[in-house]
Structures are given as C-alpha cells and as structure tokens.
C-alpha cells in the first residue's frame, strides 16, 4: 500500500498525461522510493492505483536498468565504465572499490552501506572517470578522491 502522500503525488503526475498508462514510469519511481526497491507489493500498488495490469507494470519495470529489482544499500554508487571513462582508468576504480570497500559490481556491502551499479555512460565524459552516488555527480575520480567522497556517505 502507498502512503497517502505517495497516492497524492502519483495522482498529480497522472494529471500531466492524457492516459493513466503514461504515468507508469514515474509511478514506478515513486514506488521504488516508497518501498526501497520494487517488491511484488510495490508493483501491485502501482498496478492498482493506475489500473494497469500487474504483468504490464512488472514487464515495463524490469525493462529499465535504473529500476531496482532487489534490495539495495543505503547509498548507491553508480560508476561509469564506458569507453571515455574506461580509457581514463575506470577499471582501476572498480578494482579499488572491491579491495577497499568489498564492493563488487551488482553487489552490496555486508553492512548494507553501499551498492555498486556499473553504468553505461552518465554524460560526464569530459570529466571522466565519473560516478553518481545516489543523485550526486562526482567527476575526475581517482582512488584517493573516491575514498574521500564515499567517506561522506555513512
């Protein structure tokens, strides 16, 4: 079940479109925030609220890389390893996250503090290598700067 605030938020989103179905992607974002990840209950809540079949809500939700199909850590490190980042050392950073934080691509640290998602270009190629931590951009990364940045996320 959605909170009352989430229901209102989705109804406001719904009003921006001529069809309820068009509100599906933004509603899944709201569900992800409310439930932490896209649990079966989250998909049911979206489906019931918008009147979209459950199989459709789930089918659409699982198509997109940024929707979380499993529980995540408190902070999600989204590191780009595409070509512009790769040729400037992104893979070294992947190795560093593993050795320093025990953080593997697609995995979560045992204390639930961080999850690591490998990204396909985040549009920060001129300041590569780059990552997002939750919604914040960090650019021109080095092992040293990553360590400092992640230290801020408890």
């Amino acid at each position: 079940m959605f909170s009352e605030a989430a229901v209102r938020e989705i109804q406001e989103i719904r009003a921006k479109y001529p069809t309820a179905r068009a509100a599906l992607l933004p509603a899944i974002y709201v569900a992800q925030r409310e439930f932490g990840w896209l649990t079966p209950e989250a998909y049911e809540a979206v489906s019931d609220l918008l009147g979209v079949p459950r199989a459709i809500a789930r089918g659409v939700g699982t198509f997109y890389a940024m929707y979380r199909q499993k529980p995540m850590g408190r902070h999600v490190v989204q590191l780009c390893t595409n070509v512009s980042c790769m040729i400037l050392g992104a893979e070294r950073l992947v190795d560093f996250l593993k050795s320093r934080f025990g953080l593997e691509p697609g995995g979560t640290t045992q204390d639930g503090r961080f999850s690591l998602v490998i990204m396909e270009c985040i549009g920060a190629c001129g300041t590569a290598p780059a990552m997002l931590v939750n919604d914040d951009f960090y650019e021109n990364l080095t092992e040293k700067s990553i360590e400092e940045i992640l230290g801020k996320y408890r």
């Binding site: 068009a22 992607l25 933004p26 899944i28 974002y29 198509f63 997109y64 890389a65 940024m66 929707y67 396909e120 270009c121």
Partner: peptide, 8 residues
C-alpha cells in the same frame, strides 16, 4: 518533464 529510467 518525463523521466526515463536507464535505457539507451
């Protein structure tokens, strides 16, 4: 604004 969800 309509936000995508990570699909090239």
């Amino acid at each position: 604004v309509h936000q995508g969800a990570g699909a090239y």
